[in-house]
Nucleic acid binder design. Structure first.
Lengths: 341, 341
DNA sequence: AAGTCTTGTGGAATCGATTCCATGGAATCG
DNA sequence: CGATTCCATGGAATCGATTCCACAAGACTT
């Protein structure tokens, strides 16, 4: 289809130097004269030379590629995270191989194996499940790795996570102050650290602020929107339904919202709703949604920074970013008619 | 950090065959005996061998990597598209290198150069601008390429696009039937084919259904949400403001929505609003948003299918997917008080 | 029974860069 | 001024797979 592609030898020949010198110029090695730098640059421009990344990586064992493993890019939280990480990586000259695990462990492993084969310089992962064999393989090989958003128990890897506890505690306190006693919680999957931590925080705060500890008030979702719908449906159908709902991530909040709308419940009046994760348009809803917000952009940037430190052979401290409640109109006062439309 | 990594020679030695035979087994070459297949497989498993993708690509000139160039992964439309394409590619054994051009031509070129250096097997791009030099370089090198969502005039590459015309025409007709005469249009950037096509469709339909052709009713945005806000603000401030707004993509519709909310305008009553692109939660708004919908998942899948055909040396026909109006409550009847809150 | 065809195999060349090593000339030193 | 360092350079080895080529041994022809 195309002719034989242009190699560094062609560049070297045109510039009148050896390929060793051409290589040194291209990689910014200081042991080059101004004259050869200039001649090589001219030859590169004339031939529109693009060095073969495979050949370079094979010899130098640096690929300038990082692997980013997320669970679902369609979740706006992960889209923002991917965007932030990818832009931060690009600024450091690294390109990003994206893997969507789709909340599926086999698919996660498939991508991790690919990352190993591609000899990526590092991996940023929002992992799930416990001892994934591929995850262990990544670490055994000494591939620099950081966790983002989520961690895995028993695996000691630097991470950037959110302190969900503070935000959730604020949310529960806020609801309690409004007079809510029965708060339904739509939990994330217990195979993820965020799913487990947020549930623990919720339970602890519920106890602290005197909310009902009825286990029926917790529904286990999977962080995807359909489970938010069915969760809300289930909770509203209880003999003693809650007067407020708290969803552990934004897609499940969207699902819950759909159910509430379908049932004709007025949010903030008939039923309070709070979502974990802020999304631009949550404030545009009528009424605007009360949320637990955290800085996703910082999370992505920080993950790249930590990964670079690990690549440089250091062992950086993990970073925990704060979360905070942003009160909007969806979490109004509990009144006696609540929950009984 | 790690010991010398495991190569195919180690596998071959353990299996008691030559590396040539080991390679044949690994790549599924039929010229192998059952016995060596079995022995190599055992050795691979025992050593947890992951072939070096660089070495393989260098020799075979196949990388099994495709480049996906989008403008902004935070736009839900592109997130859905990325997800669909990535999953379809994975099913074919291809992994995806993601590039976010961020609606910036230099960054688009940066990624295209990276794709060339990485010797990707193919490129799926939602391009912008006209003769990007890097885009020309990609095509000159004969790298299989398909366009998705957008095209570039004068570049003959198979593409998957949406027939915006039918949906926009339906939307304009719908608004005209409701009695609207002045419809504000928040256009996309005219450096993109979708921005241009949709504006043309809108103008043509406006003429056909007798809407005002006042050029002040068109505001040029950039497909990002902030420009939707300022666009709506600008249009509402006209001496003769519109009674309905049509936004050329969903982020701009979200921005317009924010402005309408801030001004206290009731959507569907004080001001009609229609968005191009359907997003899950648009139907959850109060009132639910009327949208022009198209099948993003099919677009992603089709792009991968076309790319595979190009890689196989064929020249597939471009695909145009339909769009259609989905009427919800945000596009109500025009009444005399409209536009004068 | 002798020649032709298959089939599986191993040795060695190859892909395109980087990098080790040796070298020659200029610069610096005592 | 001779010895030593420094610098830029080119030749050749190297990274780890794939693939060309030659070859041996068995399966078929006629």
């Amino acid at each position: 289809m195309t002719g034989p592609s242009i190699t560094i030898k062609d560049v070297a020949a045109l510039a009148g130097v050896s390929s060793a010198t051409a290589s040194r110029v291209l990689s910014g090695n200081p042991a080059t004269s101004a004259e050869s730098r200039q001649k090589v640059a001219a030859a590169v421009a004339e031939l529109d030379f693009h060095p073969n990344a495979q050949a370079r990586a094979l010899r130098s064992t640096r690929t300038n590629v990082i692997g980013l493993l997320l669970s679902d890019i369609r979740n706006p939280f992960f889209a923002d995270l991917a965007h932030a990480a990818e832009q931060a990586a690009l600024a450091e000259g690294l390109v990003t191989l994206l893997g969507n695990a789709n909340e599926s462990i086999p698919q996660q492993d498939r991508y991790l194996d690919t990352f190993i084969s591609q000899r990526v310089d590092g991996v940023i992962a929002a992992p799930q499940g416990e001892g994934s064999s591929s995850l262990r393989a990544v670490l055994e090989r000494g591939i620099p790795t950081v966790f983002v958003d989520r961690t895995v128990d028993g695996i000691d890897v630097p991470s950037v996570t959110t302190d969900s506890d503070s935000g959730i505690r604020q949310a529960v306190e806020h609801l309690a102050r409004q007079g809510h006693e029965r708060v339904g919680y739509i939990a994330g999957p217990q195979t993820t650290s965020t799913g487990r931590d947020r549930l623990k925080s919720f339970s602890r705060a519920a106890r602290e602020f005197g909310l009902s500890a009825d286990p029926a008030l917790t529904y286990f979702g999977d962080f995807q929107s359909a489970s938010g719908s069915t969760g809300a449906h289930h909770l509203l159908g209880l003999a003693q339904p809650p007067t407020a709902l708290l969803a552990a991530d934004s897609p499940m909040a969207v699902g819950a919202l759909a159910t509430l709308n379908r049932k004709g419940l007025r949010i903030g009046r008939d039923m309070a709703l709070i979502a974990f994760d802020d999304i631009e348009w949550f404030s545009l809803l009528d009424p605007p949604l009360t949320v637990i917000s955290h800085d996703v952009e910082a999370m992505g940037r920080t993950a790249v920074r930590l990964l670079l430190e690990v690549i440089d052979g250091h062992k950086p401290e993990s970073v925990v970013l704060p979360s905070e409640l942003i009160v909007r109109a969806s979490s109004g006062t509990a009144d006696p008619s609540l929950g009984r439309p």
